[in-house]
Design a protein around this nucleic acid. Structure first.
Lengths: 193, 193
DNA sequence: CTCAACACTGAACGATCGTTCAAGATAAAA
DNA sequence: TTTTATCTTGAACGATCGTTCAGTGTTGAG
């Protein structure tokens, strides 16, 4: 093994992130990892297996960022900072603006069953962590108790999706930082029916 | 010609909508149109040409729905109705929940240049129509004059994206109708900086 | 009926897809 | 040094990809 398994996963993540699951060919991965097909297949089984490890690594990283928000003293301030992260990407990393999970979800019907399930699981994990943010903010009084935390978590995930998707389509993602402020401002309101 | 060109486009739309641009093969389209490759190529040039006509047709339909909102007496009420449309899809049409444009945008880097440009143009057209909704609502007093209409249009497009994407990932899209009410409720607020 | 015009057919092309596998390289244990 | 276990190599496989084209069928004008 010329370099550790983890580096292969990170290199593969770059490729899947840039080209999507369907758009990425094994030959793209062979070039990215600088390995021949046999090495990749013996290490990860197949394209699907490699992607599942990439997705798992990506999800854990994103989830730990969200959990950092939960642990902070002012969850709402830290949430604002978290949402701004992808808006300051340089041109060479523009493909990292969009969330890898959302990007892959778009090809839903054409994905292997295991990938579909893994995406669902990742999505639920992140929503659950968003819910923890709401609960933490309520517990320290930054948000009222009237908010239905499960709905707020789904809504927050939706805002995350909107922000990432809009930013990915702009020449300068930083131009929608104002939307982060609106999200934080809208979070406490309009939860009654 | 056994049936009009427009029907070919509608059938192709079903396929592209379900499987995405990369996920759709010419053989899928041959089956959907019940035509052999030569017929399709003589009528549309190639896969890209057929998709461009599909995208154009889709965009016009969606845009006219938005313009209907602009023309209505109560734009905000009609906007609520417009946003709810995809949330009441039966199981056989679940793939129509997600917006075709957003779905295709996910594969961005792997798409032909003409498709990239067409998606950009469609996206801008719809944002412009969203802006007309804001302006109309302001003109009849449903919204205050303090709102920056271009930002509100982008925000509204983002909410549209969030709603469609969340709904597409749920077993029952109708379960997030509450979010439409929150969107309408959030629209007038938090536009000052 | 004739003939030009046009849409349609379907076998086939070269390219690329994900994947396999026998053989070679490498390094630690014996 | 030999053995054993592990990792790597790269040619090659069958399947599928988008696309082409010579031939067939259909239609309406003269």
């Amino acid at each position: 093994m010329s370099y550790p398994r983890e580096e292969s996963i990170q290199r593969a993540m770059e490729t899947f992130w840039k080209k999507g699951y369907l758009g990425t060919g094994m030959r793209d991965l062979q070039a990215a990892l600088d390995k021949r097909p046999g090495s990749i297949y013996s290490a990860f089984g197949n394209k699907e297996g490699l992607y599942l490890e990439v997705l798992n690594s990506y999800t854990q990283r994103l989830n730990s960022q969200i959990l950092d928000v939960v642990e902070s003293q002012s969850p709402l301030d830290e949430l604002r900072r978290f949402l701004c992260i992808p808006l300051s990407m340089d041109d060479s990393s523009m493909h990292k603006v969009q969330c890898l999970i959302i990007k892959t979800q778009a090809d839903w019907t054409e994905l292997p069953d295991n990938v579909q399930r893994a995406l669902q699981t990742s999505s639920e994990l992140l929503r659950h962590s968003f819910q923890k943010i709401i609960l933490k903010a309520q517990s320290i009084g930054e948000l009222g108790e009237n908010i239905q935390t499960n709905r707020a978590a789904t809504w927050l995930q939706g805002q995350f999706i909107a922000l990432r998707t809009l930013a990915a389509g702009m020449e300068n993602p930083a131009d929608i930082e104002w939307m982060v402020d609106k999200i934080i401002g809208d979070l406490p309101n309009n939860w009654e029916e």
